[in-house]
């Protein structure tokens, strides 16, 4: 394992203990991510995907092991690892604009002037096509729109790594398709390094450079890592009949439903 990798997760164990009962969630998880790479993490519900993401975010501590970002140990949360949470987590008392501005004003308090910060905030909102609804509150916009604002807020921090926890999980198929295309476009433009959790095999294959497949918990590990050597930009309609795409899709499905079928934890 080279320490040179952009983001390096090294031999991470995570156990939660409460009242003497220890619940081993992750066991010896290691992963190297290059700059600009798009990684998907896929696995059955409850296997510890969010836990892994939170460890990279610095929101959860490790039991053993270490995470490096650009050679520095990750031990606390920060805007260089922006998170889009599983359930959007916009602040309901702020408008869409204010939600993004809260992050922008804090992260760029010293480096940008007030006017620049406003412009930057607006640019992020425009990037996710939400300018028309910027003055509405989360309760007044749809789930897809909330998720887009969540993405805008994360992008606005100019993170080194963008962490997405099932960003499209709660959306209907049409909105999801649309947002996936948008995220692909944004990533092509900004070349972010992305770590995305998903349940959706097609989404994983379509968006990722590599797919990390996790075994079932407890003590989940990385079972397999699959490279997706598809050209970008990717067009979903053309890919439907693409051989590499079909093979990758089959490999993930096989992993999830044949080798590591979901067993209801006792």
């Amino acid at each position: 394992m080279s320490a040179q990798a952009f983001l390096s997760i090294q031999h991470v164990d995570k156990a939660f203990s409460r009242g003497g009962v220890t619940n081993e969630v992750l066991k010896d998880v290691s992963l190297d991510v290059h700059e600009g790479e798009y990684i998907s993490i896929i696995g059955h519900s409850g296997c510890g995907k969010s836990t892994l993401l939170n460890i990279v975010a610095g929101l959860t501590g490790v039991t053993k092991g270490v995470v490096f970002l650009e050679g520095k140990v990750v031990d606390e949360p920060g805007p260089d690892r922006a998170v889009v949470f599983q359930n959007h987590s916009l602040l309901p008392w702020l408008t869409a604009y204010e939600n993004v501005a809260l992050a922008v004003d804090k992260v760029f308090a010293k480096t940008k002037s007030k006017a620049e910060r406003h412009e930057w905030t607006m640019r992020q909102i425009e990037l996710v096509n939400m300018a028309h609804a910027k003055d509405r509150r989360p309760s007044e916009i749809s789930g897809g729109m909330k998720q887009r604002i969540g993405i805008a807020r994360a992008l606005a921090m100019q993170p080194k790594v963008l962490l997405l926890d099932e960003p499209f999980g709660a959306l209907d198929a049409l909105t999801r398709t649309h947002l996936q295309d948008q995220v692909m476009q944004i990533q092509a433009e900004l070349k972010n390094t992305v770590l995305m959790i998903t349940h959706d095999v097609d989404e994983a294959v379509l968006l990722s450079d590599r797919i990390v497949m996790m075994t079932n918990g407890p003590s989940a590990r990385i079972g397999e890592v699959l490279s997706v050597p598809l050209e970008r930009p990717r067009k979903r309609l053309e890919l439907v009949s693409d051989r590499t795409y079909i093979a990758a899709r089959a490999a993930v499905l096989k992993f999830l439903y044949e080798r590591h079928r979901f067993v209801e934890a006792a």
């Binding site: 949360p77 920060g78 809260l102 804090k106």
Partner: peptide, 20 residues
Amino acid sequence: DYSNVAKVIRLNGFEYFTKI
């Protein structure tokens, strides 16, 4: 989730109190 957002953007104690 709200306190996680605050942690990621590194709000200080006072900002956390007034803004979240």
